[in-house]
Write a protein that binds this DNA or RNA. Structure first.
Lengths: 327, 327
DNA sequence: CTGAAAGCGCTTACAG
DNA sequence: CTGAAAGCGCTTACAG
């Protein structure tokens, strides 16, 4: 609670000029008498001096921080992106997180983060804002919005293909896809990957979109509709994890045995997948690396350069209890 | 990507002094000729002027932002605290979130947030740091560490009592408590509430601590031990939600039917509770209000005042499928 | 080896 | 009604 100790206070206490204190304290390579240096450091310690980051930022025209905007903290997918971003930022500065979703209105976070408080902005999952209004370099993460050419995404098509391959490898031939909301481009790419994989294998392409958002409730509803349609399915690929959990509920409600009657694979892995019963087989995507790469790109690229990158780190199918050989 | 437009640019374009621009743009009650005002506003618009929050903060000695430090984004409990805090802060400024846990080392976030970047710091779930080093007003949220007299918590004892009451109301007499890690004071209070409730009802006090942290794995392990001990239980209260999910897994593995053979109640409610099968009966605590109240207290109280508050908002048992009448 | 001065982009008395 | 000036707490050429 000490607070308010400035360079001037330390300088006065040590009997030197503030400029010298500044140099010494930042460990700058400056020729000072060892005695003077010691005095300065000692006084800074005694007074509990802590540099004012705000003043430093103003002078340097550099905030030393990055912003990361997340739609919601309820989706475990984002937790992994955050971890990657924070790790990558460790040397460059800090990461300030904000939600674009609940709790306050659309533009509030924009005001908060677009006034020099951060050196760059990572926007995860889109957020319906007008990017042209941003005065800070930004980068879309895991979402490529039309007209915005600064984004980094994952290989969503490949994830779907891996899911189909896994099921096909177990002998499944009637496989459906429960896709994300039409607005999300990740869901468009995952659907496209699914269709490709089916075409390659000569399988019928059966797809059911999730109404509304990428949620458990949406997944449950989509699964219900598939069951009603009675398509003779033996496998389902669900485009995201919470929705897959919802699908599992619908199956449980309908008395359908997983994986005996139907195998389920979800895209994206998280602890949740291992917690539900039956535990979910998933395609693990490199979310941590996505977060880390996003910080790297933001920190090193020119603010006006276009960035279109697909993070091509290894992905893998995590086999759990929701998939098995076709009956 | 415009960037770098300052008050001076607008002033030049409008042919006035920067001080006038500052006054007009902040909507200050200043007597300006309507024509001049219009010219200033027009130029600000044309140049896409955005105030530099850093410079403003330095001048005002006020950051206009609060920091919220969270141990992990993997626990849904914190998501609710965040929503409450953001809503309450909406008029006061923004909320900057940071993790104290994974991704970087212990003190990194401290440097990031303790240099004038925020006007106050909310620290959720403790974080093993030395509070005396903080130069910014802080408040512990949901954790009362010995020796720190600035905290706001929930009524953890009452939550346990409500859980026991619910089970007792269903006829249960042999009830165990799976508690949190010894280090967490929330777990101490919940255990104490459990013991009290049992004493009041003349029930035996059976408690099993969760090894390690408040996690699903810990809950599973604790449940396993309880099963091994073969105590003739009919009900279990689990001190936190992820651990309860773990406990459910242990029961499933052991072939114990929930709620037919054993009823389970978890403290804390979140979507996850409705997603697992069987869905979990929980005690819903006012986490959103906790977050909101924390911001309020931080914003309005003197930095040196001691704060010891228990948020006494309504709590309720959310009955789902994991509890039923004793066999 | 150390100091004096300018300036980062604002806000706010104080003048006119 | 509008402007000139000081100052928030730093950093960094430029001097000595």
């Amino acid at each position: 609670m000490a607070g308010r100790v400035t360079l001037a206070d330390v300088a006065r206490a040590a009997g030197v000029d503030i400029s010298l204190v500044s140099r010494v304290l930042r460990g700058e390579d400056v020729k000072v008498r060892e005695e003077t240096r010691a005095r300065i450091i000692e006084q800074a310690r005694v007074l509990e001096y802590r540099p004012n980051a705000i003043a430093r930022s103003l002078k340097n025209a550099k905030a030393g921080a990055f912003g990361l905007v997340i739609p919601t903290f309820n989706n475990p997918v984002y937790a992994q992106i955050i971890i990657g971003a924070e790790a990558a930022a460790a040397r460059l500065g800090s990461v300030m997180l904000t939600t674009s979703g609940e709790g306050w209105d659309r533009t509030n976070w924009l005001e908060a983060l677009d006034g020099g408080r951060v050196d760059g902005l990572l926007i995860a999952g889109g957020s319906g804002i007008d990017h042209s209004r941003l005065s800070v370099p930004y980068l879309m993460v895991n979402r490529a919005v039309p007209g915005v050419d600064r984004y980094v995404v994952l290989d969503d098509e490949k994830a779907s293909r891996m899911a189909v391959d896994h099921l096909a490898g177990l002998g499944h031939r009637r496989i459906a896809f429960i896709g994300g909301p039409a607005g999300a481009d990740t869901s468009v790419r995952r659907l496209s990957g699914f269709e490709q994989a089916c075409r390659d294998r000569g399988l019928e392409q059966i797809a059911e979109p999730i109404p509304g958002e990428y949620t458990a409730v949406g997944g449950r509803e989509a699964m219900r509709r598939l069951l009603e349609a009675d398509l003779g399915l033996s496998g389902v690929v669900v485009a995201n994890l919470p929705s897959a959990v919802g699908a599992l509920q619908a199956l449980d409600d309908a008395g359908v045995q997983v994986p005996e009657d139907l195998s389920v694979v979800a895209i994206h892995d998280a602890e949740l997948a291992g917690l539900v019963r039956p535990s979910l087989t998933t395609v693990q995507m490199p979310l941590t690396q996505l977060g880390a790469r996003a910080i790297e790109l933001l920190a090193t690229s020119s603010p006006s350069a276009s960035i279109n990158e697909v993070v091509a780190k290894p992905m893998q199918v995590v086999v759990r209890d929701s998939t098995g050989p076709v009956a």
